[in-house]
Write a protein that binds this DNA or RNA. Sequence first.
DNA 1: AAGAAGTCCTGGGCGC
DNA 2: TGCGCCCAGGACTTCT
Length: 291
Amino acid sequence: MPELPEVETIRMGLEKYLLGQKIEDVDVRLGKTIKDGDVKDLIGGKIERIRRFGKALSIDLSNGYSIAIHIKLTGQLIYDGPGKPKDARPSEKLVGKSLPDRHTHIIFKLGKGGVLYYRDIRQFGWIRILKTDKVETLPFIHELGPEPPAAKAIGGQALLTPERFKEILGKKKTKIKPLLMDQKVIGGIGNIYANDALFLARIDPRRPANSLSPSEQSKLYEAILEVLKRGLKYGGATEINFVNPLGQPGGYQEHVLVYGREGERCKSCEGKIKKIRLGGRGTYLCTKCQK
DNA sequence: AAGAAGTCCTGGGCGC
DNA sequence: TGCGCCCAGGACTTCT
């Protein structure tokens, strides 16, 4: 799902195409998408900076306002306009035949005919308009835990050190996998990378967090960094409909270690990947490799 | 108070 | 072919 590597892929894309562009108009087609603020405050503002806080983004404007965005499961930000490579073909399957379509909820109209579309099939995502100096007071961002240093920390967020990671794990009795995905504890990890990191570290996702030995804690820390970096290298994972700002999918789904591989062969032994439910979420593991 | 479970929402896959 | 049913999940809300 859209996690740190996917959202960072979007951030880098937006940075490439949107910096310096002016917002001339905003077309709100599904009002509930804008959870806070007034899109009128964006008009005339020039895009100066794109920050990421865990899985959330902030597009900061020259007029003191920002657009905070959380795409949740199915949100997409798709750019069309000046600077877009001529040979860039958006995936018809993932973003529809032509934009805007019925899933396009917000349209940001930029100068020189540029457009940024916000699409969200399941409508879980949100957009908030607020003063730039208030972005970090949003509950999701304010309460966000430190994030693993797998990408450039563009939001100025706290980074997760190995020492801090061990301290967190030692204090929590909860199962390790749901803990990794708790944004208030660690920022940026979701279901795909939690599953893959635990496989890489050979740790059973059902283990209580405080039962990990110091060497398992270290292995898990390194495994988290490794899978997040792989995700970034492949431009994110497209499980449902993730796309970058050019409307193209990522590639990590071709390289997943266990996520979504129920019944398939384990990548390090002859066993098969099992699927269980943990914290209401699909959880994949090799019971021979992960102890 | 920590930890677990229910909630939102839609499209895709399935069985008949 | 088409209908009804169930499942997927990030983070918030509600429960035990």
